[in-house]
Design a protein around this nucleic acid. Structure first.
Lengths: 119, 119
DNA sequence: CAACTTCGTCAGCAGTGGCTAACGTTAGCG
DNA sequence: CGCTAACGTTAGCCACTGCTGACGAAGTTG
């Protein structure tokens, strides 16, 4: 299927971050703005591969590009992580509530033998 | 190449979350504990597919499984998101600092440069 | 203009991963 | 015991994607 539904920012960001090399790139240019060539030099894959990663990251809004002559300077764009944080916080909150609910339920019921991890 | 590096919790969690269906499952059982069959019924793919997703989520620590007779009850396990949050917060912080730095630089400082290798 | 630098894009290949159908496993019931 | 319910597991198919090498585009210099 080549069908691609409506553009989903969260899905895009998550898919982009699922690739270890892309996370490394994001970390690299989170502290410093760098030209594509220097970013590529930091890894052991071809410049082409890094360029494709940069394209992906830029497309999904996780990277900012600025041109200077023939060079293209990149730096990570924190706003792109907003929705992802929202998703995580939401999931986190709900899951914690559910966990609390189960604990209370367990506390009020007659002996329910079970070893639940304490994390 | 079948090279598999050391188990990386962050990578595992991120790869698991990159799949839309798995995120939907996590959301579904974030609010309430549910048996596999009921989770599968909530989607239009086969029970097999959902079962595989459940296995993945459980393996990477994002899901908690509890057996009751022939049934298996699942619920989202928020602790599994800890490292992911850490990663995001770290990246977010660094990127924001860099953004601030660039603004200051633009306000009057000469250009910056250098930086080589990266992790 | 040509030559060179910096970088993106295209084609094709190989590995990954989600999916279905068929089968195996475990628990409860009569 | 057989029978059923509720699951997980396996084999294989097919789309997706990260990779390399070749090529093209754009900007700078002489």
């Amino acid at each position: 299927m080549v069908l691609s539904g409506p553009p989903d920012r969260l899905d895009d960001a998550l898919r982009a971050l699922a690739e270890p090399r892309r996370r490394a790139i994001l970390r690299l240019v989170a502290d410093q703005e760098l030209p594509a060539g220097q970013i590529a030099a930091a890894f052991e894959v071809s410049r082409t591969a890094v360029s494709q990663h940069l394209t992906v990251l830029k497309t999904v809004g996780l990277l900012d590009e600025r041109r200077e002559g023939t060079r293209r300077l990149y730096r990570t764009r924190p706003e792109g992580l907003a929705e992802l944080r929202e998703f995580l916080d939401d999931l986190w909150g709900s899951a914690l509530d559910t966990a609390r609910g189960l604990v209370e339920e367990q506390a009020g019921l007659p002996a329910r033998e079970e070893v639940r991890d304490a994390g």
